[in-house]
Design a protein around this nucleic acid. Structure first.
Lengths: 200, 200
DNA sequence: TTAAATAACTGAGTAGACTCATAATTGAGT
DNA sequence: ACTCAATTATGAGTCTACTCAGTTATTTAA
C-alpha cells in the first residue's frame, strides 16, 4: 500500500483524533451537567481514552473547560465585533461587543464563572489558557477600536479604558451578588458602569 | 464552687477557645508556608483539634483563609482610611486607601490571590465570607466618601465609580500578568487606571 | 443526683483530581 | 523485515479536602 498522502504521520493523526474525541466528550458532558457535576473519569470514558490520557491533553480539569469554552467564546466575539460595526453610538457599539459574550458566558452559568475564574487564576503557560488570554486580548482590541471612534476617549487612553471595561465585565459576570440576575439585567449592570466610565 | 461570673457557659467558652486556637494555627502555617503548601490536617494538628472539627469552624479550607486574612485586611483598611483624610487631592486620597490593602494583600502573594478568589467565587452565605464582603463594602464606602469631596465626581455617581475602582483593584491584584510586579508597581498600575477613570 | 436531651467532637472513611511506573505504539535507521 | 529509541497511552495508586456515624461533653429537667 502506498504511504498516505497526508503530511501528518499516523502518530499525529491519532493524537488529533483523540483530542477531538476528548473535546467532544467534555463539551457534551459539561454542557449538559455542568463542570462540577462531571468527573474526569466520565469524560475519559466517554472519549474512550484512559483516565491518565486526559491529562496529557489538558493539564487540569479546568484547562479542559477552557478547551471547550474557548470555541464558544470565539464565536460570540465574532458576532459581537460584527454587530458593533452597525452601531452609531460608542456606548451602544461597546455593548454590542459585550452582549454576545454575556449570553455565551451564561448559557450554563456555573461553567461560565469557572471559565472566567480559570482565566484569572489558572496557569497562563498552558496552551488552552494562552488561547483564552488571546481571546480576551482580542476583545479588548475590539473595544479599543470602538473607543477610538471618539477623539476625546482616544485622548483619555482607549487602551486603559478597555482594560477597565474588561475588569467591569469580569466582576459583573462572576460576582455572586449577580447570580440572581438574568442576561439582560447583567447587561444593564455592565452598561450602567461603562456609561459612567465613558460618560464622565 | 460558685458558677463562673461569665455570661457564657463552658460550652461557649470552649468553642471560642477552639476557634482561637484554629485561627492562630492557620495564621501561622498559612503565613509561613502559603495556603497551598499546608494541609488541613496540619492546621488541625497544630490547633490540637480533630481533623473533622476544623470544618465545624470553617466550611472549607478557603474559608479558613478568609478567617485569617479578614483581620489583616481590616487593619489595612483602617490605616488607609486614616491616611486618606490627610490627602488633599482626590486621586491621592483614593490611593491612600488602596495602598495599605495592596501591601497587606501581597505580603504572601499566593494567599492574597486565594483570598480575593474566594471573595468572588466562594459561598457568600458562610460567616467568614460575609465578613469579607462587609470589608469590601466598607472599602467602597470609604472610596465613595473621598470621591464625594469633588462635586463633579459625585454628580457622575460616586457609588458606581467606587464599584469600578474595586473591579480595577481586584484584577490588578490577581492578574497573572502582574505576578512579576512589586507592590509599588501594582500601585502605579492601579493609580494609572483610576486616574483615567476619574480624570475623564 | 441523675437522666434525658442537646450540642460539639472525632478520625476512619469517601471521592475525585491528578501522578507515575510500566506497557504499547510508532517511525527512522539498517 | 527487524531493531531500537522516542513518543504516547494506561490505570492502579496517591494525595488531600471534606463527610458522617458514632462518641463524648455540657446543659437542662425532674
Amino acid at each position: 500500500m502506498q504511504p498516505a498522502p497526508q503530511t501528518l504521520g499516523r502518530r499525529e493523526r491519532n493524537k488529533q483524533e483523540k483530542l477531538d474525541r476528548i473535546t467532544a466528550a467534555a463539551r457534551e458532558l459539561f454542557t449538559q451537567y455542568g463542570v462540577d457535576e462531571v468527573t474526569t473519569q466520565q469524560v475519559a470514558e466517554k472519549a474512550d481514552v484512559g483516565s491518565g490520557t486526559l491529562f496529557l491533553y489538558a493539564k487540569t480539569k479546568a484547562e479542559l473547560l477552557l478547551l471547550v469554552h474557548n470555541v464558544k467564546y470565539a464565536e460570540a466575539l465574532d458576532v459581537g465585533i460584527e454587530a458593533a460595526a452597525a452601531e452609531a453610538e460608542v456606548l451602544d457599539a461597546v455593548m454590542a461587543i459585550i452582549n454576545p459574550i454575556i449570553t455565551c458566558n451564561r448559557v450554563q452559568i456555573e461553567n461560565g464563572r469557572t471559565y472566567l475564574k480559570e482565566i484569572v487564576f489558572g496557569d497562563p503557560a498552558e496552551p488552552h489558557h494562552a488561547e483564552a488570554l488571546a481571546l480576551t486580548q482580542r476583545t479588548e482590541a475590539a473595544v479599543v477600536d470602538v473607543l477610538n471612534r471618539d477623539k476625546k476617549l482616544a485622548a483619555r487612553g482607549s487602551g486603559k479604558l478597555a482594560g477597565i471595561i474588561s475588569a467591569i465585565m469580569f466582576i459583573s459576570m462572576t460576582s455572586a451578588a449577580n447570580l440572581g440576575l438574568n442576561d439582560a439585567q447583567v447587561g444593564d449592570d455592565i452598561r450602567a458602569q461603562v456609561s459612567v466610565l465613558l460618560g464622565g
